[in-house]
């Protein structure tokens, strides 16, 4: 009897199986990448340097002004760090999905579908590359500097919101990658649309919402909810007034936004796979 009580729900087993398949496939790519060690280090360092250049641009701007849209340099650095960190984590985990169109065209999605594991897990882990961690590390450094300068008063709730920010931001960007990939089942060269949301979105989130047109910011709250990645939690964490004009509880609503994004991405993925399996293109 005790056994039947502890039987986990079916989604739990499926998720565990999918994560296991992800780990196995990613591990293979990791080992394959070590076959080219020099190239690994060059691209890792290269990635970190190119993403650092973005920050140099912001720092140069502050040579001429003390605030940007009412935010100080450490505060903007906080946005920069959190935006890059969450995008970097999402890119590290599922970023390979933007190559899906290529795999659809050359037919290698078929080899994935004949293995006993979830297709999304296998395809996300495809070409898993630790060099993408370069962006994560570089953004962590900027975030670290920002927190050092800001000298925030870390209460329990603030620590929790900070942790939730990282997780939910990663989920929101990850959902954009998955939804974008799902779209590539229909149009194999649609990666650019998804890039505008992920990379374009992340660049937008590096700057305070107050420097953007009101409509754009509202779109980031009610449309594609990128504002929940870092803008809204940052208002609470940094103790800043709301320049957007949204309900106060939105600052803590990132988990809800992440959940909605993940659900929408999941549906899009299912539709994409279904379309592939009925057209076989």
């Amino acid at each position: 009897m005790a056994e039947s009580l502890s039987v986990p729900p079916p989604w739990y087993g499926r998720t565990r199986e999918a994560l296991r398949a992800y780990r196995l496939v990613a591990g293979m790519w990791l080992r394959a990448s070590l076959a080219y060690r020099t190239s690994f280090w060059i691209t890792t360092v290269g990635n970190a340097v190119t993403s650092l250049l973005d920050f140099v641009v912001i720092a140069v701007m502050f040579q001429h002004t003390t605030t940007l849209g009412g935010w100080t340099l450490p505060q903007v650095a906080f946005l920069y760090g959190t935006s890059g960190l969450t995008l970097g984590l999402a890119d590290l985990l599922v970023g390979s999905l933007d190559q899906l169109g290529q795999r659809v065209r050359d037919g290698s999605v078929d080899t994935v579908l004949v293995r006993p594991a979830a297709a999304l897990a296998q395809l996300s882990a495809d070409r898993f590359a630790l060099r993408r961690a370069g962006r994560v590390v570089q953004n962590l450094l900027v975030l670290g500097w920002s927190l050092w300068e800001l000298q925030l008063d870390w209460t329990g709730p603030k620590l929790l919101v900070m942790a939730v920010l990282v997780v939910c931001g990663t989920v929101i960007f990850g959902s954009a990658f998955v939804a974008g990939a799902a779209f590539q089942f229909f149009a194999t060269d649609a990666a650019e649309v998804q890039n505008s949301v992920t990379y374009g979105g992340a660049t937008m989130l590096q700057y305070p919402p107050s420097v953007f047109a009101r409509d754009l910011v509202r779109g980031a709250v009610y449309g594609i909810p990128l504002a929940f990645v870092n803008w809204l939690p940052a208002l609470y964490l940094l103790g800043l007034p709301d320049p957007i004009g949204v309900p106060g509880w939105f600052r803590f609503a990132s988990p809800l936004a992440a959940l909605l994004c993940a659900a929408a991405a999941g549906l899009a993925w299912r539709a994409g796979i279904r379309s592939y399996r009925s057209t076989g293109s």
């Binding site: 078929d110 579908l113 004949v114 279904r274 399996r277 009925s278 076989g280």
Partner: peptide
Amino acid sequence: STTIKMLTGILVPS
């Protein structure tokens, strides 16, 4: 190939 793809479950039959 269409037959093989249907027999492996890659393709859904109409």
